[in-house]
Design a protein around this nucleic acid. Structure first.
Lengths: 194, 194
DNA sequence: GTCTATAATTCGATAGAC
DNA sequence: GTCTATCGAATTATAGAC
């Protein structure tokens, strides 16, 4: 009766607890990185006992793995005119970063990937399976293959300097300025001759 | 007699030990970040006793501070023609990163700054005191102030994706391709209208 | 499912012999 | 200056009561 009679779509208590842990873990990992976040702190944030974290995720590393799941939710850029693509790209990532603070999986991944090889591998997977295909749909597979790395460098460079390093000259720009300032650089990259 | 009679320019034994510790510390901090590098490991790399690290640097944090000292050694860009500036900038940083593996202070700083607020502060200082002035000398203080952040984003984005995340599409480029591929993007940023 | 208690490590830092 | 020995603290992980 505890679970079988539950309405479709509703979370069991266990699933709710698990989701709460994951949310807390992402915030901690994003703010402090892997080494400095403790299971105790995550549990405290989620308002449960530390042993529950072990129960649901096995160990710290598996919890970390679960926190690294990222879906960039890139739209279909094939419908976007070529000259609007750079701005659309920047805008999507900024929205992703500044939209929902609780939904910061990409920042978790970025911060973690710098000091953790497993996270770096995940980041490479994310770009290979999500960014590269989206780019290929927009500008063709050949050109995409040539510029995907530099596009990644520019978008992640923005995330790095604005949200992690917080360089004043980058944080000083508002969202609109950011898009209009970075779009030309991306455009130059996208149209680079090979 | 141990030090007073020593030849000018020669390191005392203490200074040599200190330098060896610092070199080992930089490699460890660069490879693993602050939290995961242990004084024991640094001492083992430097082939000395762990207590020596404490003796010379006081504690782990002070050792870290010492390892964060970075001199970008940026040349005087005021002599470089405007259209060659982007390539010169990229080239200098790539040289800095790939030149001497032991001289990787900037990578130490970059990796550390992502998860350590003190290191992030240092990174902001480095850009304010070294990059911004060099840029101002080349393109004028007003324009430099406007684009310095985006220049930093692109250069650090390159370092991030190539040396820390090692995205295949970025590591695949050789040095020359890298410079010629990124220069147009930097040029677009530098000439951005305000 | 949830909690208490604790085992087992690891590490930074200190004290002190030589 | 260099080393041995060890303390004290923090943390992951486990065992088991309820």
């Amino acid at each position: 009766m505890t679970q079988g009679a539950m309405a479709q779509g509703a979370m069991t208590q266990g699933a709710q607890t698990k989701a709460a842990i994951l949310r807390a873990a992402r915030e901690r990992f994003a703010a402090q990185g892997y080494e400095r976040t403790t299971i105790r702190a995550v549990a405290a944030d989620a308002e449960i006992d530390p042993s529950m974290v072990m129960r649901y995720f096995g160990n710290k590393e598996k919890l970390f793995e679960a926190a690294l799941a990222v879906d960039l939710r890139l739209p279909d850029f094939s419908a976007v005119p070529a000259r609007e693509l750079p701005a659309a790209l920047v805008d999507h990532f900024v929205e992703r970063w500044e939209g929902d603070p609780a939904d910061d999986a990409l920042l978790v991944l970025l911060r973690s990937a710098v000091t953790n090889e497993r996270a770096a591998e995940r980041m490479r997977e994310v770009f290979a399976s999500q960014v590269a295909p989206a780019l290929a749909a927009a500008i063709g597979p050949q050109r995409a293959a040539r510029v995907a790395g530099l596009v990644a460098a520019q978008l992640l460079g923005l995330g790095l300097t604005r949200y992690l390093l917080r360089l004043p000259s980058v944080t000083a720009l508002d969202r609109q300025d950011l898009v209009s300032a970075l779009a030309p650089a991306l455009a130059a990259t996208l149209t680079a001759s090979g």
